[in-house]
Amino acid sequence: MATDEFLAIKDVSTAFKIHGSYYKAVSDVSLDIHNDEILAIVGESGCGKSTLATTIMGLHDPAETKIDGEIDFEGQNLLSLTEDQLNDVRGAKIGMIFQDPLSALNPLKRIGEQIQESLDYHTKMTEAEKKARVLELVNQVGIPNPERVIRQFPHELSGGMRQRVVIAIAIACKPDLMIADEPTTALDVTIQAQILDLLKDIQRENHAGIILITHDLGVVAETADQVAVMYAGQVVEQGSAQQIFDNPKHPYTRSLLRSMPQRDKENDDLYVIQGSVPSLQKMPVDGCKFAPRVPWIPEAAHEEHPSMHEVEPGHQVRCTCYQSFEFQDAKVGEVEA
């Protein structure tokens, strides 16, 4: 059961309608997630991480988005479910944790009410049982004084406590999958570590799978089993955490790793990739979307439509350029400097 593949994302694309035409924010992403496993999705701002997460949750407005592909979850394709069927999955089998605990909670509802809402829709518990379960959850996510907190309103809690509440909501029905979209970005470092530990504990307890979305590689290194690196809506490299950290192949992965804050002062900024992810409307349609950001790669190394290649079992990278191009740190540094 440890490696049951229970969420398989197959060639999923999500396009937003902007001024009448569709632009892909996620294009042909394929990923597998197993239970008891944390898959980290990394990439800089605007690369489509949240869009992918909300696509899995079915939270996009069908009038404004076009979604293709297949998301197989426990034997059904999430993308073909009706709204009612999705409501049986959301909150019950998949729980989502959002980035900003400040705005993720309804400011006018008591904490207890907001946690209980999940139970209201997915369980047949009595009021008393629900209340007990809410207290248990609040306790589980490490909030002191549960009896008091469930009667409080969001503004009365600190950011870290609110994020714990958001987590309590997500795990209320013991979902098999948790999607955490930058769960710690808005929090300070010590709280970050506590929240990550909490997520890991819950995962172990519930045997859940976690999709952890982040742009913080420190977080990835600490928690992830599997890593998928996204750029401009595509997965450019994926593999186990070890494979990605020890043997990164794609220039984007390498630059991400290099732009991780390091003690070594000399290397500061040296490998930061210039520029940023272009907006959807400015995204190159033909050829590799990443090419404009790595001007030092020789013309001949580029592929017209870079596809995924296996480096070793479980480790895949988009494009073959790594074979023809030697990523000597010194070389990259030279060109960049």
């Binding site: 909150g91 006018l108 809402e117």
Partner: peptide, 26 residues
């Protein structure tokens, strides 16, 4: 379009109820 409505929907609350309990009320 608020985040708390997205949270409510991710709990599996039907759109109709999301409007009733969260949007309209607030």
């Amino acid at each position: 379009h608020s985040d708390y409505v997205r949270t409510a929907r991710s709990k599996g609350v039907p759109v109709k109820d999301v409007f009733k309990h969260h949007v309209f009320r607030n």
